[in-house]
Simulated assay, not measured.
Amino acid sequence: MAPTDGETQGVKPQLGAADLLAGVPGLSDLDVTLRFTDVSKKPGASLSVDDIAALAQMIAQREQNGASGFVVTQGTDTIEETAYLLDLLHAGQAPVIVTGAMRHPSIPGADGPANLLAAVQTAASRASRGMGCLVVFSDQIHAARFVRKEHTTAPGAFASPHAGPIGFIAEGAPRLLLTPSPQQHVPLPLLGPARVVLITAALGDDGELLQGLGDRFDGVVIAAFGAGHVPETWVEPLEKIAEQIPVVFASRTGAGSTARNTYGFAGSERDLLRRGLIAAGDLDPYKARLLLLAHLRAGTDRNGITAAFA
């Protein structure tokens, strides 16, 4: 048997929306009218904030024209980020469901068709209205603000370690168990460019990467230890940067909230807050970066940014 292109050259995005829908058994049995659009065939790793903002504007326009729900398929590398950004930018009542596939169509056990069917079922459900952006994988429904990709290749790669899934698919219907608190949206269009850098704290790091950040970027997010801690040698550089641009600290652990009043040593959360940094709360570093970036691009001032994280 001759090797396939996927075996010789690696898998590349090739299938359009019509191809994906044609491969989903049971889709034609649903009482829904489907319309599809190919927006981009970029790999998930190459998507940009502007791509997602343009998609959010397209969704808003089509909701005004009568569409009642949306399904977005993309590569899984950045789903936890694109879904959260869509959740920030989408102010409508129509649900936006993001899904994809961990196993591409040329290998046994491809999960794309089942995920797409579940996503359409969720988008078509009245129970999903007003829920913002959701991620559907392996018959689980996740809120965009909590979901993370936790495995490189497993079909069940997506989970919400901080809160758990908010629902699941059973007998072809979404069962929503929890309703996330309403999202505070960032208005479209995003007005201007901004750059936000993400720096991860690591054992023994001397903080050299912090030098000059205030002159080169518009915002900084620190993926901090534990509940929001950094090495003592980072404290003064971070304080100086925070005098120039917003500096947010989030926990690098992936679950749980940053603290505010527990520890008091140099580099602790109390120390960082006192020096003008902003706590990310429940957001992981990747989503904290997107929240900061979206507000900077929307022209939000420092007080507004602090309130957004609060």
Rank of each mutant, 00 (worst) to 15 (best):
Q184A: 14
P155R: 07
S160H: 15
P165R: 00
V196G: 07
L177S: 05
H142L: 14
G167N: 10
R148D: 03
G109K: 01
F168H: 04
E171N: 07
A201T: 15
N115C: 09
P174G: 05
V120D: 05
N115K: 09
G192K: 15
V136P: 09
A170C: 06
C133H: 07
F168D: 00
F168M: 06
I141S: 08
P180L: 13
A144G: 14
T122H: 00
F158P: 02
A170E: 12
L134H: 12
R175G: 04
D111I: 01
G109H: 06
V120G: 04
A127S: 13
P113Q: 01
P165T: 01
P193D: 14
G132Y: 09
Q121I: 11
P193L: 08
P182A: 10
Q184F: 08
D139H: 12
A114P: 03
P113T: 06
H162E: 15
P180Q: 02
V147D: 04
S160W: 01
P113D: 02
F146G: 13
R126Q: 11
A127Q: 15
A159R: 14
P161V: 03
L116E: 01
P189K: 11
L117N: 03
Q183S: 06
I169G: 04
P165E: 00
A110P: 00
A118I: 07
G132L: 06
P165Q: 00
T152K: 03
L198H: 04
G204K: 15
A154P: 00
P108N: 03
P189H: 09
G130D: 04
P182T: 10
I107E: 00
T122K: 03
A163K: 09
S160C: 14
G130I: 06
L134A: 08
T200W: 12
L203Q: 03
F158K: 05
A123S: 10
